[in-house]
């Protein structure tokens, strides 16, 4: 009997632990960053940056036509050029429709990514891609609006930036539609972009 009681107590304890763990992970302080909150609507964002041609840009620049936005930095040798090359390929596949999409690369490394550096860098990729940069506090405000993250990491060679590598898609009214994640199969990207472009004023997402 005593053994049974111990077993029952252990089972109850395990159940309680599992429930507590579940709460902690889902609703509690341990709520994972996976399944992050979606980016806020562009109309509620607040930041002021400069594009690679020296124009003032901000959230309002993303309204009026659908937008594809991603973060990176020009000193990134692997993920960023790959993402830019992928996006260039998608824009090529979309032909003239690429002109109806704001395609924006926002630097998370304003210290090194000056307007001139951005201009030179985006010049190697599809002509529709715009490069935005600006003071660090404005970069932080932009990143926060997209619920993205970035972090400066020292290296033997200086520093690198950890950053959200997902591509964000918004409809013409600035409502978040979906993301294209870095490890997603690339052939799904163009249909997703077209879906964002087709998401109209009826709120279809």
């Amino acid at each position: 009997m005593r053994r049974l009681a111990i077993l029952a107590a252990a089972a109850a304890g395990a159940l309680a632990f599992a429930l507590a763990l579940g709460w902690w992970q889902v609703d509690g302080p341990g709520a994972g960053t996976a399944g992050d909150p979606r980016p806020i609507a562009v109309s509620e964002m607040d930041f002021a940056l400069t594009d690679h041609e020296g124009n003032d840009v901000g959230p309002e620049s993303l309204l009026g036509q659908p937008s594809l936005v991603f973060f990176g930095f020009t000193y990134c040798p692997d993920v960023c050029p790959t993402t830019l090359a992928d996006i260039s390929g998608w824009l090529d596949a979309m032909g003239a429709d690429a002109e109806r999409l704001n395609t924006i690369f926002i630097s998370v490394d304003p210290e090194r990514d000056t307007v001139a550096a951005m201009a030179e860098y985006v010049g190697y990729f599809h002509e529709a891609i715009r490069g935005w940069t600006g003071p660090l506090p404005e970069t932080e405000k932009a990143v926060a609006g997209f619920r993205a993250t970035f972090e400066k990491i020292p290296t033997e060679d200086g520093y690198t930036m950890n950053h959200t590598a997902s591509v964000f898609l918004f409809d013409a009214e600035g409502r978040f539609v979906t993301t294209i994640d870095y490890h997603e199969r690339r052939e799904f990207a163009v249909p997703k972009i077209r879906r964002a472009m087709g998401a109209g004023s009826d709120g279809v997402t």
Binding site: D36, C76, D78, N162, T164
Partner: peptide, 20 residues
């Protein structure tokens, strides 16, 4: 002057990082 094998990893929240 400093060639090194690095690994890019992208976590569940879509954040990419790179390290030796």
């Amino acid at each position: 002057a400093m060639p090194q094998v690095h690994r890019t990893a992208t976590n569940g929240s879509g954040v990419s990082s790179m390290s030796p």
